[in-house]
């Protein structure tokens, strides 16, 4: 037993030294090297900031909280797209709380968009995996076109063109699902109306 303990102590010293060496290599050298090489990708390594009149108004990757008539709305986010609190709802598939939330959202969206409740797509009724989903389904975007067009004084044709221009297809044509970039679309609305954003 004592030999085992002496051995453990001796080995632990080697362990500590190895850990320190590896921390310098893997904990500092490696991320700094990736950061340095990542500079070649420009703003892709910096979260792809989106600008309006030179001012950063968001990241192309992060969803934002939009409410009111004139915006396209993103998916439900209990944390209102707070990027310091990324999380799903973690409500289970039979949880009455989730079922009630889905029914309530269905009624709200149907009323807001003036459509039958049955037409509201699933992504408008459910929270995402991060609470920061930057996309909505093309179906949910189409549902919002008449309201957004009217609120911004634009023709539905023009708004539909904007939706199409901000629809991201499947990656490489087959990976994942198509989605509409809500921030990019709303930014295009601002440009189309000559506005400056804000509520």
């Amino acid at each position: 037993m004592t030999t085992l303990l002496t051995d453990l102590a001796r080995q632990s010293l080697a362990a500590l030294r190895l850990l320190l060496v590896m921390t310098v290599l893997l904990g500092i050298g490696y991320p700094v090297a990736v950061w340095g090489a990542g500079q070649a990708f420009g703003e892709r390594a910096a979260g792809q900031p989106v600008r309006l009149d030179g001012e950063v108004v968001g990241s192309r990757l992060l969803g934002q909280h939009f409410e009111g008539e004139k915006w396209f709305h993103g998916r439900p986010s209990p944390q209102a797209y707070d990027a310091l609190a990324s999380a799903p709802s973690n409500l289970g598939p039979s949880n009455p709380e989730l079922l009630a939330a889905i029914e309530q959202r269905r009624a709200e969206v149907a009323q807001r968009e003036g459509v039958p409740a049955a037409e509201v797509p699933a992504d408008a009724l459910t929270g995402s995996g991060s609470g920061l989903d930057p996309h909505i389904s093309p179906a949910y975007a189409r549902l919002q076109v008449p309201r957004v067009a009217a609120a911004n004084g634009l023709g539905t044709d023009e708004v539909e063109r904007l939706v199409a221009a901000h629809t991201v297809g499947r990656a490489l044509g087959f990976l994942g699902e198509p989605g509409v970039d809500v921030l990019g679309l709303n930014l295009a609305l601002v440009h189309a109306t000559g506005g400056t954003g804000g509520d």
């Binding site: 998916r75 799903p88 709802s89 973690n90 409500l91 598939p93 989730l98 079922l99 889905i102 029914e103 797509p121 699933a122 992504d123 009724l125 459910t126 929270g127 995402s128 995996g129 991060s130 989903d133 996309h135 909505i136 389904s137 991201v168 994942g176 699902e177 989605g179």
Partner: peptide, 13 residues
């Protein structure tokens, strides 16, 4: 209830 099992899933996936 929602029409698809999208609770907790991201649109792009």
């Amino acid at each position: 209830a929602a029409g698809a099992a999208m609770e907790g899933k991201e649109t792009r996936f």
